[in-house]
Amino acid sequence: MRDKDTLKQEILEAFHFRHATKQFDPDKKIPEDDFQFIMETGRLSPSSFGFEPWRFLVIQSEEMREKIKNAAWGAYGKLPEASHFVVILSRTKLDTEYNSAYLQDHFKNGKNMPEENFKKYMQRIEEFQKEDFKLLDGDRPLLDWAGKQTYIALANMMTAAAQIGVDSCPIEGFNMDKMNKLLADEGLLEDGHFGISVMVAFGYRVNEPAEKSRRPFDDIVKFI
């Protein structure tokens, strides 16, 4: 087993390796087992209260890739060159409100939570949504909150990819209404149960990036 210092160095090297890749090599494809590994790190990612309020759409259809390329300006330069392209959806208020059918099934059947624990847990979630974060005023607050959870999975997938030498680029360059309409027209949002959060391209870089630059550690990290 590798010692801790070696492992830490390898992880930091992956963070230095990772950058928002602007141009992918269209002739290089990610091996299927490597891509499955990347997606598994997304699936295993943590989420607030364990909601797992996401879905990952792996866009393999050339026709769908073309539609996304033409609808999302941030994706135009990544498709079709990227080896793999993922649209990350977040669940809407229909699924994330404390009394939703999705949460009932998710905790009772998905996580096999005992009835007594379930009732207490749902009461805590209700209090959190109503009082702590005030998420029930309109449809947008819960959707934005779920979107925050998807970014945890996004970061984990990009870091895992970097650790095995795969490049990535997160993409927010799109009109949300237009992309939601496109996905809804394709039947991918399940009648309003999902909305687009973010997209990400995976593949292999053509050009080496500039040296990574970040603000000084002492400016970012404060010990109180």
Rank of each mutant, 00 (worst) to 15 (best):
P216D: 07
N109F: 11
E62N: 13
L182H: 00
Q129M: 04
F35E: 03
K212G: 01
I164V: 02
R215S: 12
I68W: 06
N70T: 09
G147L: 01
I68L: 14
F56V: 08
L12R: 05
K93Q: 14
S47G: 04
I164F: 01
K222G: 04
L183M: 10
I11V: 15
M176Y: 00
A101M: 09
M1P: 12
E63D: 13
P46E: 02
K28D: 00
A82I: 09
E131A: 05
D177K: 13
H193R: 15
N109Y: 11
E40H: 09
Q163N: 05
H16Q: 07
I152V: 14
A162S: 04
D191C: 03
K148A: 11
G192D: 07
F107A: 09
K67H: 06
Y98S: 08
D25W: 00
H106R: 14
F37H: 11
V206E: 15
F118V: 11
K22P: 00
K148I: 05
F217V: 14
E131S: 10
R205C: 11
A71S: 15
N175Y: 04
G173Y: 01
E211G: 12
V58Q: 10
K93E: 15
G195L: 03
E52P: 06
E211I: 14
T6F: 12
A82T: 10
E127I: 08
L89K: 01
K22D: 08
R124C: 04
Q9E: 12
I196K: 08
Y102K: 03
Q123N: 12
N180D: 13
E172H: 01
P114L: 07
R215C: 02
P170G: 04
H16R: 12
F51T: 10
N112E: 14
K78H: 11
M122P: 00
A75H: 09
E81K: 09
G203N: 11
E66P: 01
S100E: 07
F217C: 10
R91T: 03
L183Q: 05
W145Y: 10
F15S: 01
L44A: 10
G173M: 05
